[in-house]
């Protein structure tokens, strides 16, 4: 019980620590006092400019995208009743990214507000394709089938992109920029533009929280408890897809945040989604911001995209989960 009581303060502390590190650590050494000074009083010294115009926006994007991915992962795991569901593994992130690349290549999308619709369309398409295919036939959407369908979709997208890029290399620059999830160099007002989408997605998922609890007991029981199983699934999945799409549009495809975070959250709190979802949001934010900080440090002065770092952190979690006895693989 004591662990569970400590969960909220601990998660909040983790977020605070990640934010502090994100503001204080980078390729440019800025003393902590300067950081605080810049935040509180502004100023136009180079150090203050770095903190306010570069580190603050990327921290904000990290917080929001991480929270979105954490909530989306928890929701997807409940909807698919599958401990390995993750926007990256299911191919949602890649679908969203492919949508964005398509938007860029055709010259129709520009900036976050343009990207997000393409990301959303791509993610919805990928979700339908992967889940629709995996759920068909014997055994339903088992983790193996979902993972393989996601892998196949990613490989297909990659193959198609390579062929397109071989024939017209003009799109190469923008594609490279988008290919790996990263928090750097994104527009500062991206966060503001993201908020409506995030809010809509989060509300949709949270509204289904009790339904998601019931889903864990099985469709029959959920129905007996008076939940409309189909509605809950569609609403939660739609909300999760919206969250993933806005995270990808802002930061590019970032894998494994949605996988690792809900499992940690489940350890720390009761299985109830009303507390599981917000806790996943906090932990997701802490993880992504932390991964971004690590990416700035490991290969300094070059930066490693946050998406690469989260994959390296997330895979051990996946391996442990797969080895766990209870995981029905």
């Amino acid at each position: 019980m004591s662990v569970k009581r400590l969960a909220w303060p601990a998660a909040t502390l983790a977020v605070a620590a990640a934010v502090l590190l994100s503001l204080a650590v980078g390729t440019r050494p800025v003393p902590l006092s300067e950081v605080l000074n810049a935040l509180l009083h502004g100023g136009s010294s180079p150090d203050a400019l770095v903190v306010r115009s570069l580190r603050l926006p990327r921290t904000e994007i990290g917080l929001t995208a991480g929270a979105a991915l954490g909530v989306a992962g928890a929701a997807l795991q409940a909807v698919t009743r599958n401990p390995l569901a993750d926007p990256g593994i299911l191919g949602l992130s890649q679908g969203a990214a492919a949508g964005v690349v398509l938007g860029i290549a055709t010259g129709l999308a520009n900036g976050f507000s343009g990207y997000v619709w393409y990301a959303f369309a791509g993610a919805v398409l990928a979700a339908c394709l992967v889940y629709g295919i995996a759920a068909r036939g014997r055994g339903g959407a088992s983790p193996v089938k979902l993972a393989l369908a996601g892998t196949a979709l990613s490989a297909m997208t990659a193959g198609g992109t390579t062929v397109v890029l071989t024939s017209s290399s003009a799109a190469l620059d923008q594609f490279r920029f988008w290919q790996v999830g990263s928090l750097s160099g994104r527009d500062a007002d991206t966060v503001v533009e993201m908020l409506p989408f995030l809010a809509a997605g989060a509300l949709l998922v949270l509204a289904c929280a009790r339904g998601l609890d019931a889903l864990a007991l099985g469709d029959e029981t959920a129905r007996a408890l008076g939940h409309r199983v189909g509605v809950v699934r569609v609403c939660a999945a739609l909300g999760a897809t919206l969250l993933v799409a806005s995270a990808v549009a802002a930061a590019g495809p970032i894998a494994f945040v949605g996988l690792a975070v809900p499992h940690l959250a489940r350890r720390l709190t009761s299985g109830r989604h009303r507390s599981l979802l917000p806790l996943s949001a906090l932990l997701g934010a802490a993880l992504l911001v932390g991964a971004d900080v690590a990416g700035r440090v490991v290969r300094a002065p070059a930066e490693v995209p946050a998406g690469v770092m989260t994959a390296l952190v997330g895979v051990p979690v996946l391996v442990v989960l797969v080895r766990r006895k209870g995981t029905a693989v």
Partner: peptide, 28 residues
């Protein structure tokens, strides 16, 4: 232009894998 052959096999193989999944040829 020389297209990398691996890109072509992925382009064709990906849908085939999805189709197989749809046909539910999964054991285990």
């Amino acid at each position: 232009l020389e297209v990398p052959v691996g890109a072509l096999t992925s382009l064709v193989g990906g849908p085939y894998l999805l189709w197989l999944l749809g046909r539910n040829r999964v054991g285990g």
